[in-house]
């Protein structure tokens, strides 16, 4: 029996989760929400995380009904992410590991998403679409690495959606993406936007600057409603994501797709991916906001796999990094 606690705080969520051999014992989380029109700044986000992290830690232990002595390993997000929040969370993880006398493990955030997705959905060897505010990648496992077959060549899809939300002042509560999704359901008029797929790669910056520019004109002239723009933006960027996922499936001969990351809980994206999979006789695996959105359990789960395969991070190596590619990690726990 192995129990791992995971600390995650690479962006505006702070989460701590505890995993015992594939079972999620607890997974509390807090989100730093900024006013409409504003993104989250690193130092403010770090301040938010500092203020709540001990409360969240207490919750995690209480909900799991565990004492520090029951924990076998302390996992934390090493990167990628925002520097200041990463440092804050790593510092707490290091401290409790020393207080409790437990080994530490620095975990790649993206690997956390993938392993949590695999645990929850039981997908065996899927093509992974990892979509969030900072990442857009199509990943497949081969020869001990999660290899990136496709990704964004500029900004992430979630970043594109968030920044659009800021432009037309959509609320950030609970998240800009969620509110775009709700508004898109009321949209009907399809507005043509640029479509930028390059093989298994995508580009969103052109779409963002186009819609930033066009939205003011179109909204003030009454040519379309904000709901129509939300609808059209989702239809366009999600089509691109489904297309590159399908291209990777065809390329790798895979019959499974797993969607992870914050944008992955968008039901329209899941619906479109489901239609594509059905057409190919493939299977779609997705999770809900509990596990799609950044959380502590995902770091605990990746940490659990790493710990079981014999990895630990020495104290002097327990630094963080803002840039940490998914394919840098040697996957020692899979064949």
């Amino acid at each position: 029996m192995t129990v791992v606690i995971g600390f995650e705080g690479s962006a505006n969520k702070i989460g701590i989760g505890i995993i015992k051999d594939g079972e999620v014992l607890s997974n509390p989380r807090r989100t730093y929400i900024t006013p409409p029109g504003q993104g989250f700044m690193p130092s403010d986000t770090a301040r938010h995380h500092r203020a709540v992290i001990l409360t969240v830690l207490k919750e995690a232990l209480e909900q799991a009904g565990l004492k520090p002595a029951d924990i076998d390993c302390v996992a934390y997000t090493k990167g990628p992410g925002m520097g200041a929040p990463l440092v804050t969370v790593a510092l707490v993880a290091r401290t409790v590991a020393q207080l409790w006398g437990k080994p530490l493990l620095g975990v790649n955030h993206c690997i956390g998403h993938i392993e949590m997705g695999r645990l929850i959905t039981q997908a065996n060897n899927p093509i992974v679409l990892y979509v969030s505010g900072g990442n857009t990648q199509v990943i497949a496992y081969s020869e001990r690495r999660y290899r990136i077959f496709g990704e964004t060549i500029d900004i992430a899809v979630g970043n594109c959606l968030d920044r659009f939300a800021r432009v037309i002042k959509i609320s950030n509560d609970p998240s800009p993406g969620y509110n775009i999704e709700q508004m898109a359901k009321k949209g009907s008029q399809y507005v043509e936007l640029p479509y930028a797929v390059k093989g298994m790669d995508v580009s969103f910056s052109g779409i963002l600057s186009y819609i930033e520019d066009a939205s003011h004109k179109m909204l003030s002239s009454g040519q379309c409603a904000a709901e129509d723009l939300c609808f059209s933006l989702q239809e366009t960027v999600f089509s691109m994501l489904v297309e590159i996922t399908e291209r990777a499936m065809a390329h790798c001969g895979s019959q499974e797709v797993l969607i992870v990351g914050g944008v992955g809980c968008n039901m329209r994206l899941q619906e479109m991916m489901g239609v594509m999979c059905k057409e190919r006789g493939a299977k779609l695996f997705a999770t809900d906001e509990q596990f799609c959105i950044d959380n502590g359990a995902m770091i605990a789960q990746a940490g659990w796999e790493m710990f079981r395969s014999g990895q630990v991070t020495e104290l002097e190596d327990s630094w963080i990094t803002q840039r940490y590619r998914t394919d840098e990690v040697e996957v020692t726990w899979r064949d």
Binding site: A11, M82, N135, R323
Partner: peptide
């Protein structure tokens, strides 16, 4: 370089 420089938040 753009790919490597991109901050990968979230």
């Amino acid at each position: 370089l753009r790919g490597r420089k991109r901050s990968m938040v979230g």
